[in-house]
Amino acid sequence: MAVVAARAGVSGQTVSRVVNDSPRVDPETRARVEAAMAELGYRPHRAARALRTGRSRTIGVVAQTLATVGNSALLQAIAEAAESRGYALAVVTLGVQGRIGEAFDRLHEQGVDGAIVLNEASALARDADPAGLALVVVDAPADARFAVIGTDHAAGARAATAHLLDRGAQTVHHLAGPAGSFAAAERERGWREELAARGATPPEPRRGDWSAASGHRLGEELAADPSVEAVFVANDQMALGLLRALADAGRRIPEDVAVLGFDDIADAAEFRPPLTTVRQDFAALGDQAVRLVVDRAEGLGAEASDPPLLVPALVVRASS
């Protein structure tokens, strides 16, 4: 660092500020220091810096699984947001056992500055001691021990159900997510609320596991019922299975059955037909999660109230 300072004609403290991305460096000086670092091949030593500062600049991520498209999309967004702030990630998946306390212990052993808990794992976070971790939980009820962020799933579900009713359906069937998922419960709540507001009777929902296979299996039951004319599906992957089941049964989409999903995954526009869905802003969610966990790790905003839920957008395509 001293050699970089001499080459750039600045103090060692200024180099330290540039390395730590401090805003207290004017752009011209920052550019000169960064040029000297590049010329000399200087790289900050993460482990040494952690010993000196007591912070590893590493964020833990806890997920039930990364097999679901939503979790993978959110992890990608978190990784990009962390990288932009100079943070690395340590990822722990819970699997079938779901022992989140053990996950927190492992992250503590790795010296992470804080952790982000994703989606289905959020229910477990309420029953485990974060043991001093700066913690942000995605999609969970408010809790004084950690920050909570998320999407307004109920609002998205209401917009989806209203769209299907507005095109003439007498009621809307629901292919729901798994029990125990906060997001699935909120999407089901929004669906029920919109049907009640319109005076429509809610059919008994069918419950899948987020996979296209479960959407196809339950979709075969819906396809066999001639009264089904509109289906709101709790995620796009299950909607994909439903589309196949309806096509195999000779039910035209959307003429016979309108289908609407949730998430707007990257391939939703390439389904046959292109899928109408509710778009989650995973990039904004990931950025918000990283910003909050970094603020809490640095002792900033720990007492601040949770930010408002992100409002999803209805994206209308050919399936409805």
Rank of each mutant, 00 (worst) to 15 (best):
Q97L: 03
D113S: 03
R207G: 05
E303V: 02
L246T: 05
D295A: 08
G177S: 07
A283H: 12
L135Q: 12
V62N: 14
A38C: 01
T93P: 15
A284V: 14
A36C: 05
G241Q: 10
Q288V: 01
E193W: 02
G41K: 11
T93H: 15
L310V: 14
A35M: 00
G299Q: 00
G286W: 02
Q76K: 12
R30M: 05
P202S: 01
R106N: 13
V259Q: 11
G177A: 09
A6F: 09
S305D: 03
V257W: 04
E255F: 03
T161F: 12
I116M: 11
G101D: 11
D225E: 11
A184K: 08
A38W: 05
G219I: 00
A115M: 08
L118G: 05
G111Y: 14
I149H: 04
P273F: 04
L118Y: 05
R99V: 09
D143W: 02
G70L: 06
R192S: 04
L292A: 11
Q97I: 03
A8V: 01
H45E: 04
N20A: 07
Y87E: 00
F282K: 06
V10C: 03
P44A: 06
D21V: 00
Y42L: 04
E34T: 07
A183G: 12
P130S: 02
I253C: 00
Q280E: 06
D209L: 07
L66P: 14
L309R: 08
T277Q: 12
H45F: 05
G208T: 07
M37F: 03
I100Y: 11
L124G: 14
T14C: 11
A157L: 12
A169K: 10
R32V: 09
P141S: 07
D209C: 03
A169T: 09
G301A: 06
G101R: 13
E109N: 12
E193Q: 10
A157Q: 09
